[in-house]
Structures are given as C-alpha cells and as structure tokens.
Design a protein around this nucleic acid. Structure first.
Lengths: 355, 355
DNA sequence: AGCATTTACTAAATCGCTTTACTTCCTCGC
DNA sequence: GCGAGGAAGTAAAGCGATTTAGTAAATGCT
C-alpha cells in the first residue's frame, strides 16, 4: 500500500525546465536557450550543442510557452469567434481554412462558439484579449451586416462572411454580385434567354439577395436580354419555397427555360417541382443552385450545377491577413476582400430545347 | 491637445500592467491582485477596492494570461486535434460540443486540423503540450480504431469517436450496438418481420459495421424473428451502393417490408430504388437511415426516420472529462464512454401492409 | 612579444503576475 | 494602560523563459 515517494501523490510531475537542462548538460541556461532556438549570433561548439540536445532528450524537456510568451510578448495565436458552428454546414470549411492559414504561419487558433449570444461574445473576446492573441476572426453565419462587440476594436480583427458599416474592421466575404453574374452568365452562354431567378428573400440576407440580383441583371444586360421582373421571385432559403416558386415560374404562360436558385436547397425544391410538372432536367429545364453544398449538389440526380462559395479560401485569407500583419510588424490596415464565387458546372444545365 | 508622442509611432501600445494600476490607485500591486481576483483572506476596504477598479477601468487594464499562466501553471485550455474537419459534416457538432463543455468550465479550446497527416499530428500535439493544455481531445472522422502519436500519452487525452486498443486513453464514442438495436427495434415494434439491413462495408468502419449488425441481430432475436443472412448486405456509405443494394433486396422473391440502411446517404439511394420499383415509402416499404444528417434526413420526401449520433453530446462529454479531472486535482482515469444513439422517428416508417 | 579579434561561453535583468510572510495601526477587554 | 487580535495593507520571492552586456581563453598579425 505504501508505494513509496513516487506514488500517486507525486503524479503532478514537474516539467523539466531550461535550468534543469542546463545543469544536466553542464552549461548555462543562456547557452541552452541559444542552442534550442538556433540563435545565430553567439557561437557554440558542436560538442556543447550535442550535450544540450542530449539533455533535452533525456529530460523530455519542452519549452514552456507561457514563459516564452511573457518574455517575448507574442502569443503566436489568433482567435476565432463565431456563431456559425451552431447553424451552418459551411462552418467546417471556414474553420479549416482559418486554422490552416494560421498553422502555416506558426500560429495556433483558439476557437469560441458564442451561439450568437452578445454577452458570451463579449466575454469570449475578452478572454482572447487576455491571452494576447494577435488577431481575431469574427465569423457569422450568413453574409450579412453585424454589430460586433466594442472590445473587438482593441485587436486586429477581420469579419469573415459578414461586414460592418462602421469602419475599422477588415472583412473577407463572397463577391455576391460576381456569383450572381457567373451563374446567370453560364445559362446565358448555354443559350438561354428566359431565365427565372428564385432569389433568397431580402429580409435577413440583404447583401446576398441584392448582390446576386445585381449580378443576374448585369449578366442579362451584357447579353442584351431584357430584364423581366416577373421572372424574379423571392423566398426563404429552403426546399419548400424553392418548390413553390419554381412551380409558379414553370407554369407561367411563357415559362423560363432555366432557373437560377438562390440556394442549393431551393434548387432541391425546384427539382421536385420540375419532376411534378413532368419536366426533365436538364433537357426541358436547366437549374443552377448557389452554395455548392456538396452533400446536396453532388448527390442530387442529376448532379446540380451551382456556384461555389469559397469558404475554405475565405477562412485562410482571414487568418493570413492577421498573422502576416503581425509578423511584418506593420500596422493593421483594415481592408475589404471580396472573394470570387465561381460556377461549378454539373449535370443540371444544358442548352435550351431548340425552339 | 497636440497628440505629440502618442502618435502613430507609438501604435504598438503597451498594455497597462498591474503595476500601472497599483500606481494609479496608490496601492501596492499585491492589493490590486487581491481586489481583481476577489481573494477571500486579506481584508481590503471598500474604498480601496473602488479606487482599484477605477484605475483598472481608466487604464483599460487587462490581466496578461501568459504571466498568470506562468505563475499558476494552469493554462485553462484544452486542445482539440482532428482530421474530421477535412471530411465530416458532423465535425461542427463535435467541435461545438467540446467547446461548450470547455467554456462552461472556464477553459478555452485550441483547435488544430491535421488533415490526417501523422507528422502534422505529432507537431500539433507537441505545440499543445508546450502550451501546457490540460488535456487533448483527439477526434477522428469515423468511428474506428486509431493509432495516435506517442506524445499524446504525455497529457490526459480522450479519443473522440474513435478508439485505440492500446490502453491509457479514454474514449467517448457512439454505442453502435445500441444504435443498430434501436433502429431495428423501431421497425419490429411497427410490426415488421422481414427487415433488410444494408450495412456499411466492414473494411474501413469495422466497429460501426459489426456493432450495428449485432444490434440488428439482438433486436430480431428479442422479437423471435429468425435471422436471415440473405437480408443483410454490405456496401460503401454512399447513395449509389444504397440504390444498388436496396434494389437487390427489394427484388428478392420474398422481399423485406422494411430496410435499415447504414447511413442516411445509403437511405437516399434506397429511396430512389423504391421509387424506381414503384414502391411507395412508407406504405409499401419502411426505410430507416443512420446518422441523422439533417440536411438529408429532414429534406428528403418523405422525411427520413433515422438514428441520431449524438455528436454534440460526445464532444461535450470529452471536454467535460478533461476539464473536471484537472479542476478536481484528481488523477486522470481513462475510461470508455459509450453514448446512446437514439431512434428519430419521421415519415419514412409505418407498419407493413397487412398481409 | 604584444595587441586586437574571434570563439565560446555566462551573469543577471526582465517580462507581469501570485502568494507568503511580514508590518502597522486600531480597537477592545479587563 | 496594556496586550491580544483584527483590519488593512505591503515587500519580495518566484514562475521559466529571452537577451544584453559582459568575461576568459585562444588565435591571428605584425
């Protein structure tokens, strides 16, 4: 029962410190630091280096990041605060992108999910500030305007997939106009002239809604196709509204030969509508979605042509911006980045039946 | 009011330290620390406390976590290393659960996505160890056996949605047997006696595959239904194999009245097969999925009955285990937690047609 | 030989906090 | 009037690194 001095009592094992290493190697702590960090200036003999590394190995020494951080006042980390984890299937890509971006620059990423609660949001940022993160990515669930807590101003911050009208914040977000354009243009290029647009309702997602409409309009304009307001509908981003509105459009006297849907889920509804009306995709009707929610777009039959939102890239850019500002010792210069949303052609688009 | 010395030159603004606060408040640093941390023992007058807080406010003082960490040797953080972000739509839930669990216990979570690369994996854990995280969650993309890097042993670790045959690691993972049972049992309870099982192939996902089969078997057994090996098929976790195998089963001489599919995506394929064969769901054939991938299950028509994997809860449990071991000063006692996978009834199940 | 370099190191201050061990002044009981 | 005990603090020693300003010995050069 008495298992002696190194029993469970002692399990909270002390980590070896640099001093321990120095002693074992028979050198000063300074030397250890130089060797370990590969410092250029001072010269240390090959043999001493070897002794140091050997001691490191034997003691399983691992530098204490807190001490280092205190001394150098650099945390080599960024924060990621978001409410998207709660809601969006795209969250993963954004997070992955941001984390990869940070990792590539030797930073770690601390993530906090706020569930959208402003109190938690504030507290989360506060916590990150105490850890002296080099920057914070503030990501929201859908591209819209946000009002970040005041304390976000105390650190370089980039708004990801959202924006704020007050300035001082950088942002990285999708080019909705470009996305609307490329979807519409793909249909125009295929020969379509009557193109229905089932947009997402302007209420919650003004930016996306208005941007895509503008893109739609521009693409038509460029091809000298007259804009027909009757071909544009608004609805919620779900399959039911997709179904309903697609049905409305397809039963018009002069129905469109192609539909551009504001989300893949709406497109899913449109598929059902087309099927119910006995129309075949893509021969009777071309359909384009938006989001490239691969779980849907790739598994629908026929596979859905859509517009991809480059979430991974967006996350990566945000992180890169934060880390490199920090590294280069420049002041943080808040800029807006619009990233391209490109058309992904699959099987749901084809030229219209010859008329 | 010429802004002189505090111009852009000085932008790398020094954070106020506790000493600054002490000076401004006209007290010792010790006192500031006591006040700020609400230390019980020493008595400080109400007035002094007030002066301290006032100074804190005016200087926008924020404690330096690194210094605190160094002094107290507690990082109040855990690590989350994973490859799932790259691949799984469920990653979000697991991460959210883990983060919430950590947050509730005053910990932050550092996340690293390794992309499955063992070298990055090792480096990531190393980085976390240097930051003296109180524990690491090691999450994998699908419930299977893993061989975590050696250095994971140097910290309390829980394997999330995966397990290792070597011991020393805790794990939190789904109860596959229970899941298989509850799916099958729901069908049995509805009156089905011939229940097809389209399992996921045993190659990559042995645990899930074998566990669910056992659950299936037990449920049949409990209801005195004979096990018919011909009703069990294995395939990959996608819609194509779901389609193919469902078709095989439904065209048997004595076809099943219900299908239990190993994933929702396979169930999606089964839907198509049923439709192609002119069978109506759920009247002619009941279908149950697995995963509760809501994007699919809720939007399929009819909505898919399935078994939910409680990823959020799993993440939460993992984090809770790590944080509370640490808080309670107990030694970390690696345990295995199997969490329940419960049946979610929607519209794709009904009693069989009376025969 | 004599002086300047170069080589190979080391002592010690410092980063911003926590915490133990005092100190000083009151007040109170007798 | 005096000692005990409480109230309201403070001084200073670390925590584990980095980094500046040295030092001692060896070597190079004339």
């Amino acid at each position: 029962m008495m298992d002696g001095p190194r029993s469970s009592r002692e399990k909270r094992k002390r980590h070896a410190t640099m001093k321990d290493v120095a002693e074992l190697a028979g050198v000063s702590q300074t030397t250890v630091s130089f060797v370990i960090n590969h410092v250029e200036g001072p010269s240390i003999s090959e043999e001493t280096r070897h002794r140091v590394w050997e001691a490191v190995r034997r003691l399983r020494y691992r530098p204490n990041a807190a001490a280092k951080m205190l001394r150098t006042s650099s945390s080599r980390s960024i924060g990621f605060v978001t409410d998207v984890l709660a809601s969006s299937p795209f969250a993963g890509d954004m997070i992955r992108g941001a984390q990869d971006g940070a990792w590539d620059r030797g930073h770690l990423m601390i993530i906090v999910n706020t569930g959208g609660d402003p109190v938690i949001e504030r507290a989360a940022i506060e916590e990150l500030l105490e850890r002296r993160v080099n920057g914070v990515i503030y990501a929201s669930m859908a591209h819209h305007e946000v009002a970040p807590p005041e304390n976000l101003r105390e650190v370089p911050a980039v708004l990801l997939d959202c924006y704020s009208s007050e300035d001082g914040f950088a942002s990285v977000r999708p080019d909705e106009v470009g996305g609307g354009f490329s979807a519409t243009d793909a249909l125009v290029q295929a020969g379509h002239r009557r193109i229905g647009f089932i947009n997402i309702g302007p209420d919650q997602v003004k930016l996306a809604s208005e941007g895509r409409l503008e893109g739609y309009w521009r693409a038509l304009n460029q091809a000298d196709v007259a804009f027909d307001a009757n071909l544009v509908r608004n609805g919620n981003a779900n399959a039911d509204d997709g179904y309903r509105l697609a049905r409305e459009l397809l039963t018009l006297a002069d129905p469109p030969t192609a539909l551009f849907c504001g989300t893949d889920r709406m497109a899913m509804g449109a598929y059902d509508a087309a099927r119910d009306l006995g129309k075949c995709i893509p021969d009777d009707i071309s359909i384009v979605g938006f989001d490239d929610q691969r779980l849907l777009s790739m598994y629908l039959r026929p596979a859905l042509s859509t517009v991809a939102l480059p979430f991974y890239e967006m996350g990566r850019m945000a992180a890169a911006q934060l880390c490199s500002t920090h590294d280069s010792d420049e002041d943080f210069e808040p800029t807006d980045h619009l990233v391209e949303c490109s058309f992904v052609g699959r099987q749901s688009t084809a030229p219209p039946r010859q008329q």
